[in-house]
Design a binder for these strands. Structure first.
Lengths: 233, 233
DNA sequence: GCATCGGCCGATACAGTGTATCGATCAGTA
DNA sequence: TACTGATCGATACACTGTATCGGCCGATGC
């Protein structure tokens, strides 16, 4: 009669709480949960405890799949790289597509801006993206390929970070552009009024203000023009 | 006789511990302490407790001078901007100088790479730097000035982050380049051996490997060439 | 079928973080 | 001299990433 435990018959013992199969875990599931958290509340909302909680699991359970939080972040970035598929005819179109799709991914996952360029990207999806880009450059002198790709990558990383940082600052001062200008405007106004930054003041006041899309594209055009000039030489 | 405390005469009471003047504090002192910590052990070594400890002060004391840790980081970045003084004749030389000196600052303060582009830079030293740059562009169409400066800034941010990230990864695998290639090499070797990245594999194997200085300068030249072509049009 | 052993899993613990709170302390005033 | 108001910083809190190690569970030997 080894079925009786602690003196209670089955009928009296309550069923164990409804853990609907102990959460079959894998990296993909973990990474997806982390990305959901980051999309919703930013990167600082991603803690191993919260990720584990979402998955109905203890925090230490995750360490069977990753060695550290940094590795989780690497996996998140690589997962987003899977969404970045540059397309186009010719190297210029492909590089432009690379830049635009990366920027778009950062718009969908703002936390990407915090991670871009922070660690070398050697995951399978990042490499696959690199393969597409390099393959599109096959007409180019082999020694020029890496410098070109690296330069475009650098521009995209910096431009996206700038843009997202600005967007966040705007949002932090009250969600709409009116309040933003009502907070930053006066600060710059007062600062420029000191007369210490005359050239800057002139440009900020007199020049046309481009929106984020145009600013990004103009810089990208500068770079692609320069590349084209040197490549076809 | 109000000089006697807790029943002990002065002769019995020990002197208070030797606090050599309660640390006259100001933002500059705080920021310098934080920068020293970051230079020595990286950004994650900068905690309000440690900064306060270095200054011989309780952690909460710092909140008289800053509202949050983020503000401290902003102050650190602006302090480094004071070291960045672009010089040169003509807009192209000044922009190149801007890029090179920024990169150099990031080499002296690697933590800068973690912060660059992370938040808008509106501190006095950042604005002073901007003033110098914009002033050097006074021959240029006023509507083109900001896009040009922003593009160069974006490239520098991304390139520096890439470079520092790579340098750290190398250092993490054992300090010298031999071990780095002994760790990463085999990984890439194995990955390329799968045949999934033929174009990438070809370029990595066949192309000349540029050092960091050349890589940075080539990308910068691309960009400046492109700018020059459009500006003088 | 049973006892023993090995390995793994995950609860607990630890050392640290940024910052809110609020009681003690001290300067200035009536 | 007594009171009041502001100021300062010790304490406390909620949370972090991760090392540790006790207990459990499955496989193995008899």
């Amino acid at each position: 009669m080894r079925c009786i435990v602690s003196g209670m018959l089955v009928w009296e013992r309550p069923e164990p709480p409804n853990r609907p199969v102990p959460a079959p875990l894998n990296r993909e599931r973990i990474v997806r949960a982390a990305i959901r958290l980051a999309d919703a509340d930013g990167l600082e909302a991603v803690s191993l405890r919260k990720v584990a909680a979402v998955l109905g699991v203890g925090p230490m359970r995750l360490y069977s799949y990753i060695a550290s939080k940094e590795e989780l972040l690497d996996l998140m970035v690589d997962a987003v790289h899977a969404e970045i598929q540059p397309v186009g005819d010719g190297w210029r179109e492909v590089l432009r597509s690379l830049a635009e799709t990366t920027r778009q991914a950062a718009h969908e996952h703002e936390w990407l801006a915090d991670l871009l360029g922070g660690r070398p990207q050697l995951g399978p999806h990042a490499l696959a993206k690199g393969e597409i880009v390099v393959a599109a450059l096959d007409g180019v002198d082999v020694d020029a390929v890496m410098p070109v790709v690296i330069a475009v990558d650098a521009y995209v990383i910096g431009a996206v970070r700038r843009e997202i940082a600005e967007r966040r600052a705007e949002r932090a001062t009250g969600m709409d552009e009116k309040r933003w200008q009502a907070t930053l405007g006066p600060y710059l106004e007062r600062t420029f009024a000191t007369g210490r930054f005359p050239a800057l003041a002139t440009v900020v006041r007199d020049a046309a203000h481009l929106d984020a899309d145009h600013t990004f594209r103009i810089g990208l055009d500068f770079l692609l023009d320069g590349i084209e000039a040197r490549i076809s030489r």
